[in-house]
């Protein structure tokens, strides 16, 4: 698995038609959902279906399963079933320090990582501690819908109500070198809104964005892709660096601006991403 997570697509866990095609929508990661998209009476049914799916069909994307929350009767059975499977991560909803520690324990002797869903007010305040509570924990997703319920505010398209949480979770995850995925944009017909919301996510440091409909994936990927300008600039930075090395210069500049280590690091990251995504074709 690469560590590219521009998009994470939720797929309902009890829908065979969607499950078997989960990896055709170009989403870097797919979240097979046992929680909100599955009716209470069908929890076991979905768990068995997802288990059989992974036992027989290979997926070309990162495979994440969202289990039911710690305080529900389904939590333990979900983990018990998932720990036998070849999956990459478990997404823990309504994560708290207590629940992530418990999950970490239950995943002993597996290679399964953890990703936390930060969707309570307490979760936002404790996000650093939660992320830091388990070595298995590789990153987080912000859950805007539930958080707004907890905050007792209305979830708007503009999303001012989430500003604090967004900045805070990004900062906490970057402080611990973990990834951060932004909450999904819930109006699946509003492409312009999705675009703006995703541009904002990228601008404040999120690594990717969740989506609740396959239609959204393309737009999200495009936005998180390095742009042609970014790629070309990065190439020039690295070329200039090579030149400087040959000429034995420690410090060098490009277009009149001094190029220092952060710029070089950033350029290397852009090129690495572009290479992995096959975006180098057609660049100058």
């Amino acid at each position: 698995m690469t560590n590219i997570r521009r998009s994470m697509l939720f797929i309902p866990g009890n829908n065979p038609g969607m499950l078997q095609s989960a990896d055709v929508f170009d989403s870097d990661s797919v979240i097979f959902d046992l929680e909100d998209s599955v009716a209470i009476d069908e929890k076991a049914s979905a768990r068995i279906l997802v288990k059989e799916l992974f036992s027989s069909i290979e997926m070309s994307c990162e495979r994440i399963v969202r289990i039911n929350p710690y305080d529900t009767p389904f939590y333990a059975s979900d983990i018990e079933a998932m720990r036998q499977l070849d999956i990459d991560m478990i997404l823990l909803p309504k994560a708290s320090v207590e629940s992530i520690k418990d999950l970490d324990q239950k995943l002993i002797k597996t290679n399964i990582n953890i990703m936390v869903l930060i969707e309570t007010a307490l979760g936002v305040e404790q996000v650093f501690e939660i992320l830091n509570a388990s070595k298995r924990c590789k990153g987080l997703m912000l859950g805007g819908e539930d958080l707004c319920v907890d905050l007792n505010c209305i979830r708007t398209k503009k999303g001012d109500e989430l500003l604090y949480a967004r900045y805070r979770v990004v900062n906490a995850s970057k402080a611990l070198s973990k990834f951060a995925i932004d909450t999904p944009y819930t109006d699946t017909f509003d492409e312009e809104g999705l675009k703006n919301d995703t541009l904002f996510s990228k601008s404040i440091g999120f690594d990717g964005k969740a989506s609740i409909n396959p239609r959204q994936v393309h737009c999200i990927n495009e936005i998180f892709n390095p742009t042609l300008d970014e790629i070309n600039h990065a190439k020039r930075v690295l070329e200039a660096k090579e030149m400087a090395l040959k000429e034995g210069k420690g410090v060098f500049s490009l277009d009149g601006k001094m190029v220092d280590l952060p710029i070089i690091k950033r350029a290397e990251k852009v090129i690495e991403l572009a290479l992995k995504l096959g975006l180098m074709k057609g660049t100058s």
Binding site: V24, F25, P214
Partner: peptide, 9 residues
């Protein structure tokens, strides 16, 4: 149908 849309794209 998201699969139909993917094919169309």
């Amino acid at each position: 149908n998201p699969i139909g849309l993917k094919i169309a794209r």
